[in-house]
Amino acid sequence: MIFTPSELEGVFFISLQPVGDSRGWFSRTYCKNEFAAIGHDKEWVQINHSFTSQKGTIRGMHYQLPPFREIKMVRCIAGAVLDVVIDLRENSPTFLQHTQLELSAENRQMIYIPEGFAHGFQCLQDNCELIYHHSAFYTPGAEGGIMYNDPLTGIEWPLAPTEISDRDRSHPLLNKNFKGI
């Protein structure tokens, strides 16, 4: 794996390095020692798999509140998505800035998202599947969200949104009183 730091401290873009032969290929997606080198010292306690059928669908922007904040690692195993994270860390020099990365089955990229970030994605193709590793258990009542099109984040989605859940449509817009998590 090759870990490339993004412009947001703690967020890494991870390139898998498949080794192949006439049978196909093999690639490592996690190694405790390699992740320790970037400061990851938590256990993955939950692994989730999502399927989204329609191109243009947006899921996000989601986060968990303290003390249930979580680290995520996301990989697309079918289709392609634009994956986006927003820095919500209180007093961070990149507070409310975002970064993005295309994740696809073809490019085999992953994104490592530390605690204190909101996460979401838009499907660039039909029939997208993502695998998420989480360092904390999902805790109902400790979740938060930001509107996918909040003007304070400046996210430019590449496609017109086709599907957005009622929950994601109800996330609040940020205001000057939001100090982060």
Rank of each mutant, 00 (worst) to 15 (best):
I2C: 09
T4N: 03
E7Q: 14
E9N: 11
F12G: 03
I14N: 04
Q17S: 10
D21M: 12
G24R: 08
S27R: 11
R28K: 15
Y30M: 15
Y30I: 14
K32A: 10
N33M: 12
A36H: 11
G39Q: 05
H40K: 01
V45Q: 13
V45W: 08
I47N: 15
N48R: 01
T52E: 01
S53T: 06
S53C: 04
Q54W: 01
T57D: 04
T57V: 10
I58H: 07
G60D: 03
Q64W: 11
L65S: 05
L65N: 04
P66V: 02
E70G: 07
E70A: 12
E70N: 10
M73S: 06
V74R: 08
V74K: 11
R75V: 03
I77L: 09
A80K: 09
V84M: 05
E90A: 05
F95W: 02
Q97E: 14
Q97D: 10
Q97L: 12
T99H: 11
E102Y: 01
L103E: 04
S104R: 00
N107F: 01
Y112A: 00
Y112D: 00
E115W: 12
E115Q: 14
G116V: 02
G116S: 09
F117H: 04
Q122K: 00
D126C: 00
D126A: 00
N127T: 14
L130K: 08
P140D: 07
E143Y: 02
G144C: 13
M147D: 12
N149C: 09
G154C: 05
I155H: 07
I155Y: 10
W157F: 09
L159V: 09
D168W: 02
R169K: 14
S170D: 14
S170G: 08
N175L: 06
N175S: 14
N175V: 07
K179L: 15
G180N: 01
